[in-house]
């Protein structure tokens, strides 16, 4: 049976995925390719950060040792983070950012969809909101994937380059471990095969319209779920955690 530790692990996995990707998206703030996108990207970032806050707040309650949502975000070191490696990758160009957003949302949408039926009421409740947010992320980033994939020669070349960069990080989304298996058995987490099937369908439909080659998910680079991250994470955290580290124990 899944216990308290498994639920905590799940909250940190989801929370960290959302926080780190939200942080990366927020780096675009004021630098997007067009003004409309300067509004669209923060909308998505705010959805992601909102979910991270829910996860950390819930985790803090379960742990019950007086930690706050901010302690999870700002006072853990890199090896304690549990997000998949894809979300911490530097933004690259708009093709990379938007393709990553699409792949993450295409994965997360069926995860949340499954969680709407979770035996954990709190998660199920949040899933009802998050599933709609992810549906929009899939649509918005997917429409861009189509336009960039089937736009100009340059945009197609950039999309292919982004796909090459991201491909090794896709497999990690679907890896399972004992924790995940217990969560599935306990009805806390959706069946990974169903998630994968939905993801494949979403990606293949969009890629066909984008004139991108079909996605071949193979075992690639992983380690995020056990805290083995890339060097880039340390720099991300150095920036994100600066204030809390420089001025410990203050209220902001």
């Amino acid at each position: 049976m899944a216990g308290r530790d498994d639920l905590l692990a799940l909250l940190l996995r989801i929370g960290d995925d959302h926080l780190i990707l939200g942080h990366r998206l927020s780096e675009w703030c004021g630098h997007a390719p067009m003004l409309e996108e300067d509004l669209a990207l923060p909308n998505m970032a705010l959805d992601l950060i909102g979910t991270a806050r829910m996860c950390y707040g819930y985790a803090a309650e379960i742990e019950g040792d007086g930690r706050s949502e901010d302690d999870y975000a700002f006072l853990r070191d890199g090896t304690d983070f549990r997000h998949i490696l894809m979300v911490e990758r530097p933004n690259g160009d708009f093709a990379f950012t938007i393709l990553r957003q699409f792949l993450f949302a295409a994965y997360m949408h069926p995860v949340w969809d499954g969680l709407t039926g979770s035996t954990d009421a709190r998660l199920a409740d949040h899933a009802g909101k998050a599933v709609k947010e992810m549906a929009y992320h899939v649509r918005h980033s997917g429409e861009w994937v189509i336009r960039l994939g089937d736009g100009t020669e340059e945009s197609a070349r950039r999309m292919m380059a982004a796909l090459d960069e991201l491909a090794p990080y896709i497999g990690e989304m679907f890896e399972s471990d004992e924790t995940a298996q217990r969560l599935v058995t306990a009805g806390l987490l959706a069946d990974p095969d169903a998630v994968r099937a939905t993801f494949d369908g979403t990606v293949s439909r969009t890629f066909a319209m984008a004139k991108l080659p079909s996605l071949d998910v193979t075992a690639g680079i992983s380690g995020g779920r056990t805290g083995r991250h890339g060097e880039v994470l340390g720099h991300l955290l150095a920036e994100m955690q600066f204030m809390q580290r420089a001025y410990p124990g203050q209220t902001w």
């Binding site: 409309e36 509004l39 669209a40 918005h140 429409e143 336009r147």
Partner: peptide, 20 residues
């Protein structure tokens, strides 16, 4: 108003700009 390359992107831009 919004700027967009086509009607699909225009609806999305309108959503992101005017219904926050």
């Amino acid at each position: 108003s919004v700027h967009a390359s086509d009607e699909v992107m225009a609806v999305q831009a309108a959503r992101d700009v005017y219904t926050r």
